[in-house]
Nucleic acid binder design. Structure first.
Lengths: 129, 129
DNA sequence: AATTTAAATGTTATAATATAACACTATGTA
DNA sequence: TACATAGTGTTATATTATAACATTTAAATT
């Protein structure tokens, strides 16, 4: 198991505590009191945390969330639901979906090693508003 | 059917001719001889073209490609394969996949109006290198 | 324990991506 | 014609991300 470095720990903890995806500069602002001063310090930790699967990047939002799925060691098969009204993001953990996508092959015969899926819609709360 | 404005036409044409996804500032550079001088002119056209489904944004690459699928009127169900070596991007048009994803419902009962899926791997050419 | 190697850090500068705000022009429609 | 809507042009600026280099820490190897 991977041990997080000091900066990685600080940045993971703040993302993990956040109820919503966090953007890099918002993370930076929040960790300045802990001595992390420069964007690069944040981006380096983010890169590593993504690489080891502790966090995921929500590509359509340029934001990061902690992995909700304890079995997710690496970020090679990710799926999220995103509410377009309140911007709540949830990681989808559905074995039928992941099985279907992991085995998917397109006409060109390309074999995929990774995928990222983002669903958009309205969450329950926002639907009834 | 939608008629493209002057700037939309110019910007669509250059993306449509490109064999690979184009980035906004690369588009800007390429259309400056046609009188389009500012980033905002490019981004406005891109926004509209995405909205009407003539182009798609590859979120993981911040780049744009023309829709390969003549039936794709709006960008509400998109899937792409991306080669991590040569960066070639192909739009996937697979009715089994789109049916599966369009009907997908997660545990939270959220109904999705849109999705975007990006597969990553090595294309045939890059596999045999 | 000393050596060596890889990983992480700190820092300054800058590149790349994207939007705000405002004035104006063209186009479609009542 | 007049009214509304969409598109344009422009300047300035916000946001997201990386390059380059010097140094320090941690881990693996001898």
């Amino acid at each position: 198991m991977h041990t997080l470095s000091k900066n990685q720990r600080i940045i993971f903890d703040i993302i993990d505590k956040s109820p919503e995806p966090m953007k890099a500069y918002s993370i930076l602002f929040n960790v300045q009191k802990k001595g992390i001063k420069a964007p690069l310090q944040v981006y380096r930790a983010l890169d590593k945390l993504v690489e080891i699967g502790k966090i995921h990047k929500i590509e359509s939002r340029n934001a990061f969330i902690a992995c909700q799925n304890s079995s997710c060691q690496v970020s090679k098969a990710t799926a999220f639901s995103i509410c377009e009204s309140c911007e709540k993001v949830t990681e989808i953990n559905n074995s039928s979906l992941s099985k279907y996508l992991s085995n998917f092959k397109d006409k060109a015969g390309m074999k995929y090693s990774k995928y990222n899926l983002e669903f958009f819609g309205l969450c329950k709360k926002c639907t009834t508003k």
